[in-house]
């Protein structure tokens, strides 16, 4: 975490509005990107992004460091997004959530690769992959978006999702297997 951000966070905690505005500018794309991928639409992503910044503003007195600021911001955003997803759950057909790590390991042994005849247009494929990620249950979706797309480490994700690293790991492995299976079954 660079000293410029450390400085901004310190000023923000002390109630400096200009510092807060600068932090919004620096982090809004990251928060929105995660929110958009989790929610799948602009309206909800906008809602999650705004709420994350409003809530971190309200909780600024608990912030000690810049790394804690970014972790807390992502934690608020992903928790809020997960709650929204759960509220809308009836509108989704989720990929079943009862797969355990050992079942997933067995599943990967019998699963087949996509194969060369299943190649498709890149953009069409990406839209399809996005759909598969959207089908994942909220916590697996959060882990996979943060790790595989946004590049957060498992340590950071464990902090953001408030769970052990082993849980992050199993969420990631199961999510990838589900995505691949879904893509194999549901060709565009």
């Amino acid at each position: 975490m660079n000293t410029e951000i450390e400085d901004l966070v310190r000023k923000f905690v002390d109630g400096d509005h200009a510092a807060f505005a600068e932090l919004v500018r620096r982090y809004e794309k990251k928060v929105y990107g995660v929110a958009y991928r989790m929610m799948g639409n602009h309206l909800d992503a906008d809602d999650v992004t705004q709420e994350a910044f409003i809530r971190i503003y309200k909780n600024r007195e608990s912030i000690k460091t810049a790394s804690f600021f970014s972790c807390l911001l992502m934690k608020i955003a992903t928790n809020f997004a997960i709650d929204l997803i759960r509220k809308k759950k009836n509108r989704f057909v989720a990929i079943d959530d009862d797969t355990t790590a050992s079942q997933a390991l067995k599943a990967q042994l019998i699963d087949k690769s996509l194969g060369p005849d299943e190649s498709m247009e890149s953009s069409e494929l990406m839209a399809h992959v996005k759909k598969a990620v959207d089908m994942l249950p909220p916590r697996q979706r959060t882990a996979i978006i943060l790790h595989d797309i946004e590049g957060f480490s498992k340590d950071e994700i464990a902090d953001i999702m408030e769970c052990p690293q082993a849980t992050v790991r199993s969420n990631l492995h199961i999510a990838r297997i589900k995505v691949k299976k879904w893509l194999t079954k549901n060709k565009p």
Binding site: K29, A45, Q108, S113, I149, R176, K180, L183
Partner: peptide, 20 residues
């Protein structure tokens, strides 16, 4: 196991940022 995880990771990793 690695091949399957890598195949999924490579696809998911390529999902682009939303255009805003």
């Amino acid at each position: 196991f690695l091949e399957e995880q890598r195949a999924a990771y490579d696809l998911i990793h390529e999902v682009s940022r939303p255009e805003t």
